[in-house]
Every structure is written in structure tokens, then in C-alpha cells.
């Protein structure tokens, strides 16, 4: 979708990783790399977005994601406003009316999370020319900042993407994370992307996104460099998608045993929050190959990069942040 780019190819919004050129994705990773240095300092702040207003518009309850966006914005010196629509009563007010009101307050950026696929796209089509929209997760469609922080984490460990076998395990059907990961990693040139799940958790024609499909963990994890687990929502047990959590864990839960066919230096990732004993065994989640908490840390630098690039502030960034 070209709505997210300016005519000169710069980011205007950040709605999906689909269709973004490799150069731009690499630029995000490189910019994030420079911000990672900032975070390690005792004064964790740069003045890039001073005087800018970022509104976190969360129509779906989320603490962790909202906090990382808030931290990222604050470390860029932006003013941050959190609107939790999930808990605030907006009876009878449409998304559009709410947006118009917030826009009248002259915000520069909306960070939007919504339960419906296409919601961020919709918001982006309706904001004024001065405002940017950052997708913090829309339905099953996209969660592009998560995918970029995953790519960032992978690159830090593996250096590049070309020769990597990356396996995405679990509920691909309902996962915006998986879709964004697949698009981002394909564009970044990943050697092979696999999805591993029972057929009830795979959307039709998923192969069309350029992935190899496996139903067997042993085959799917063979020689894998990266294992990306997906969260399994408890409500999936309803509607006959799966028989039970124990059965799911038996077949698809990641244990040290199941991880054996992967490369010895394989890393294990998870977007969180994890369901211990459902999709992942605690020993793996906390084991030496797990980079799950690193992902959380990296999320801040990556979101800082995307926010500053989208608001056109990254060019002014000093080489060595003070």
C-alpha cells in the first residue's frame, strides 16, 4: 500500500511492512542501531521530536506495547498523550469523530491499535496532511513495528538475513505479527521462511506470501537459525480450532526436545506475552537461546527510529548523540 510513503519514497505513515523496499527497511534498522546507543547511556533522551505531540490511540487493551511506544516517544522528547479507548467510554462516537476531535488538538502522530484489520489504514486515510499514523497492531492484518524489532534482533545475532532459515510457529491464522514478519523478512532477503502449524491455524493460500508450510515441528525446525513463536490466545480452544491446550503443547509447544533439530546456535523469539506451557516451555523461554527479553529492549530503539523517520526528524540527528 503506497499510502504510507511520500512521493519521494520517505515514510509518511507506518502501516504495514508489505511492499516496503529493502533499502527503507535497512534504513530503519540502521537508524535503530544508532538509537540503541542512546538507550545505553545514563541520560536516555534526544531532542529530535521536541515540541511534537504523539497520541497513543489504543482501541484494544495493551500495556506492554503502549509502554514501549510511550517510552520511545519520550526518549525522543515528544509530548505523549495516552488515550485508552478500550477503557474510556466512547459510546456512540465513531472512530472518525474521535479522530477529528483529536486532530483538532493538532497532534503530529497517532499510534493506533485496533481490533479490526485495516483500522490503521482507515485512520491514515482520514487524518490531515500534517499528521502521521503508526500502526501498533490492527486485527489480524499487521503489526509492523513488532516485525521490525524482530528483524533488528535477528540481525544483531546473525549479522545478515540471506542464508537464514527462519521458522514461524503457531497461530499464523490470527496473527498480525506473523504477517508482518513474513513481509519484512522476505523483503530483507531471508533465505527461507517457514510456517509451522496445524491446518486450522493457517490461513488459506499462505504459500502465496512466499513461505514453506510445515505441520510437523521436527521437519519444520530442521536446520533453523531462528525460531519465532507466536502467542496462542486461549479463546482458540472455542470454535473447534484446537482440542485443548495440553494437546497443542504436546504437538507444537516448543521444548528443548523439539528444538533439537534446529541449528545449535539457533535463537528463540516470542512477541510476548508468553503462555508458558502452552506454546513454549519455561525452560526454553528462559534458556540460553531465548532472546525474548532482548526483543522488548530492542522494541524501544526500533520504535524511536520509525517515529523519527516518519516525522522527518532523523536527518537532523547528530552522528554521535550527546
Amino acid at each position: 500500500m503506497s499510502t504510507q510513503l511520500h512521493t519521494d519514497g520517505r515514510l509518511r505513515h507506518f502501516l504495514t511492512t508489505e511492499g516496503l523496499p529493502r533499502q527503507l527497511l535497512l534504513q530503519i534498522l540502521d537508524t535503530a542501531e544508532s538509537f540503541a546507543g542512546v538507550i545505553d547511556k545514563s541520560v536516555k533522551k534526544v531532542p529530535l521530536l521536541r515540541g511534537r505531540t504523539v497520541i497513543n490511540l489504543f482501541f484494544e487493551a495493551s500495556t506492554r506495547t503502549r509502554i514501549t511506544f510511550e517510552l520511545a516517544a519520550k526518549r525522543l522528547s515528544a509530548d505523549v498523550l495516552n488515550v485508552n479507548v478500550a477503557t474510556t467510554s466512547v459510546k456512540g462516537e465513531s472512530l472518525l469523530d474521535m479522530l477529528r476531535n483529536l486532530e483538532a488538538m493538532q497532534a503530529d502522530m497517532f499510534v493506533v491499535r485496533h481490533a479490526e484489520s485495516g483500522a490503521a489504514d482507515y485512520v491514515a486515510r482520514h487524518v490531515g496532511p500534517g499528521a502521521s499514523v503508526l500502526n501498533a497492531g490492527d486485527g489480524r492484518h499487521a503489526h509492523p513495528t513488532q516485525a521490525m524489532l524482530d528483524a533488528f534482533t535477528i540481525r544483531r545475532h546473525k549479522g545478515s538475513f540471506e542464508s537464514l532459515i527462519i521458522a514461524i510457529v503457531g497461530d499464523v491464522m490470527h496473527s498480525r505479527v506473523a504477517r508482518s514478519q513474513i513481509h519484512a523478512l522476505s523483503a530483507l532477503g531471508a533465505g527461507e521462511i517457514r510456517v509451522i502449524a496445524p491446518r486450522t491455524l493457517l490461513p488459506r493460500d499462505i504459500e502465496s506470501l512466499g513461505v514453506r508450510v510445515f505441520h510437523d515441528m521436527r521437519l519444520g525446525l530442521e536446520e533453523a537459525d531462528v525460531v519465532m513463536m507466536l502467542r496462542l490466545q486461549r479463546e482458540r480452544m472455542q470454535g473447534a480450532l484446537l482440542p485443548s491446550e495440553p494437546e497443542y503443547f504436546r504437538v507444537y509447544g516448543l521444548t528443548e526436545d523439539k528444538l533439537a533439530p534446529a541449528k545449535p546456535d539457533a535463537i528463540v523469539m516470542h512477541p510476548g506475552p508468553i503462555n508458558r506451557g502452552v506454546e513454549i516451555d519455561s525452560r526454553v523461554a528462559e534458556g540460553p537461546r531465548s532472546v525474548i527479553l532482548e526483543q522488548v529492549t530492542n522494541g524501544i530503539a526500533v520504535r524511536m527510529a520509525i517515529m523519527s523517520m516518519t516525522l522527518g526528524a532523523y536527518q537532523e540527528m547528530p552522528r554521535e548523540p550527546a
Binding site: S117, A142, P203, R204, D205, S208, L209
Partner: peptide, 15 residues
């Protein structure tokens, strides 16, 4: 339609 576009957009399909 439960097909390529629904899968891409993450919108539940009707087979």
C-alpha cells in the same frame, strides 16, 4: 473471499 487477499489483509474469509 477466503483466498489470497483475505490472507494478506488478515480479514476472516468466506470459503
Amino acid at each position: 473471499h477466503d483466498g489470497i487477499v483475505a490472507t494478506r489483509l488478515g480479514i476472516p474469509g468466506i470459503p
